Simulated assay, not measured.
Amino acid sequence: MATRIDSHQHFWQPARGDYTWLRADVPVLAPLVRDFMPQDLMPLLEAHDVTQTVLVQAADSQAETDFMLELATAHEFIGGVVGWVDLSRPEAAASLERMARHPKFKGVRPMLQDLPDDDWIVRAPHPDALQALVRLGLRFDALVKPRHLGALLRFLREWPQLPVVIDHAAKPPVGEADGEVFAAWRHRMREIAALPQQVCCKFSGLWTEAPSAMYRDADVVAHAVRPVWEHLLECFGPGRLMWGSDWPVLTLAGDYAGWIAVSEAFIAQLSTGEQAQVWRGTAQRFYDLQPA
């Protein structure tokens, strides 16, 4: 069995009040409006030989980042934390310096997909905050959709020294490989992957991007995801792709074992060394994770 690192998972407690997007009155989200904590994930990690995870923010709140860092202190399997600060404010640099004192704080993720300005990433971040990311050796998770990729490309060209990973492959329309949006996604991802600096991509979060008719059916979603995988592999190669679950958001569409089975169908076609890169090596290197 392959040893794995889950490069993208979440924990939350809705009662904390951080998660404004988690609304019980939205039927599709209602199953997520409960606590998801380490004791819920640990049996899945053990069953699938996942030795470490990267815990990623799910709220635009520094308090949630502190909450995640507390969990990382208490649980060895959490290898790194990707938190949140308001990068548009100059005082973000001081917040980053404080968080970076924790050895498991690895970077930040602004919730770009939820912001009203699709060009926020090239207009709003304060240079002091971005320079602090670079100076402190931190990373940037880009939570984007296809419509954001043009702005992200401009940002990457302006900040070539900042390590960036694209979450969930920028959420292409799974199952619509013949459509215009998918074609535009393919073009932009190829442009981004061709940049000289190290930009990585997460193979994660794609089951929930499929039509709801594909939920709970791993075989059907594997067929729909294949064009996404093949393009990512062509553009980024195994050395810049990392596997992640996006648990517990994943549970809206499938389950942990099912997503591993879907991923295995593609990753197993690589050489042994290339498989190790996607399952664990790329995440370990990008986030500078210490061995569990």
Rank of each mutant, 00 (worst) to 15 (best):
F105M: 08
R109W: 06
P110M: 03
P110W: 03
M111C: 08
M111A: 13
L115P: 05
L115Y: 10
L115I: 13
P116E: 10
D118L: 15
D119K: 06
V122S: 10
A124N: 02
H126V: 14
P127G: 08
D128M: 14
D128V: 12
L130K: 12
L130N: 11
Q131G: 14
A132I: 09
A132N: 10
L133I: 10
V134N: 00
R135E: 03
R135G: 06
D141W: 05
P146W: 00
R147N: 01
H148M: 05
L149R: 04
G150L: 03
L152G: 04
R154K: 14
R154N: 10
E158K: 11
E158I: 02
P163S: 12
V164S: 00
V164M: 00
V165L: 00
I166N: 04
K171I: 14
P172S: 08
P173T: 14
V174M: 01
V174H: 03
V174F: 02
E176N: 07
A177W: 08
A177G: 14
D178V: 13
D178P: 07
E180F: 04
V181A: 05
F182I: 13
A184V: 10
A184I: 09
W185P: 11
R186H: 01
M189I: 15
M189A: 12
R190Q: 15
E191W: 02
L195Q: 02
L195R: 01
Q197G: 01
V199Y: 03
F203K: 09
W207T: 15
T208W: 00
M214D: 12
Y215N: 14
D217T: 12
D219H: 14
D219F: 10
V221L: 04
V221W: 02
V221I: 09
A222H: 03
V225N: 06
V225A: 11
R226Q: 15
P227G: 09
H231N: 13
L232A: 06
E234V: 01
G237R: 03
M242H: 02
W243C: 07
W243R: 06
S245M: 11
P248C: 05
